[in-house]
Amino acid sequence: MSILVGNDTKLAVAGITGREGSFHTLNNRSYGTNVVGGINPKKAGENVEGIPVFGDWKTCVAESGANTAMIFVPPPFAAASAQEAAEAGVELVVIITEGIPAHDELKLYNTVKEKHPGTRVVGPNCPGILSPGKANVGIIPASFFKEGNVGVVSRSGTLTYQIGNELSVAGFGNSSIVGIGGDPVPGSSFIDIIEQFEADEQTELIVMSGEIGGDAEEQAAAYIKDNVKKPVVGYIAGFTAPAGKTMGHAGAIVSGTAGTAAAKAEALEAVGVRVGRTPTQVAKIAMEILGS
């Protein structure tokens, strides 16, 4: 199988007419993703290389049958577009946009949870989801990855490419690669994605790549202890980050003594997750487990 995106994905893109939006949408389509529409209130009726543009999500879903949304619109409007997609009944909303206010993310998260429980949000500030050989929704450079049995979930894009590439060079592939994003209130947490990998037949090993800030890794550790039988390999970035400084991602900040890399690695190791100290080591541990 693979998770979240695959052969059944029918993708529509908000922000499809923008420079980045159109570039990555067409990239996703040439990878084989079924792209069925786009949204731009001012350009309804037009098309982007044959992909029809609709004025709003409701019309788009009704006419194209889209079940997956990708959000590329600028930060002031991104959360509203994601919510509109959820209201229109889209099952999966992937928000690529970086720089959305945390309060908007908070409202979006709670609104979707309360009013649209059938919708899953991934992101914001994430590279998207790739199921090698099936579908690519987002900006992950697919050429580095091939189909296989390692599920990857990560708060960081380039770090995912780094780890995935090392696995790939060594001959291993991926079921799905899920970027959950580096913002303070992500739509999906490590737990949400790990739960799906645990249930996915194709996935035999799970790699989770975390970083400083918040307590999502600690929560994942507690979840893994009671619910996950598949082996999990962890990585945490930011051991050398000073407290009080935002390290690139809006959510990557050590607040006082909370959210440190050491505490996260410790929490994971305490439940039997092997944590690599470098991306290379993560790949090595994964290979060790898979090869044995």
């Binding site: 990560s154 708060r155 960081s156 894009g157 380039t158 770090l159 995912t160 780094q162 580096g182 790549s209 970083e211 400083i212 990585y235 970035a237 930011g238 051991f239 050398t240 980050a241 400084k245 390290m247 690139g248 991602h249 990557a252 890399a261 100290r277 470098t278 991306p279």
Partner: peptide
């Protein structure tokens, strides 16, 4: 580096080899 996660990771790896990063 490119990408916040990769840069954080780079700082960590440099520190593991005994160096001290001057910046992110």
């Amino acid at each position: 580096g490119n990408g916040a996660g990769l840069v954080m990771s780079t700082l960590d790896v440099v520190a593991q080899y005994g160096g001290t990063p001057a910046n992110f």
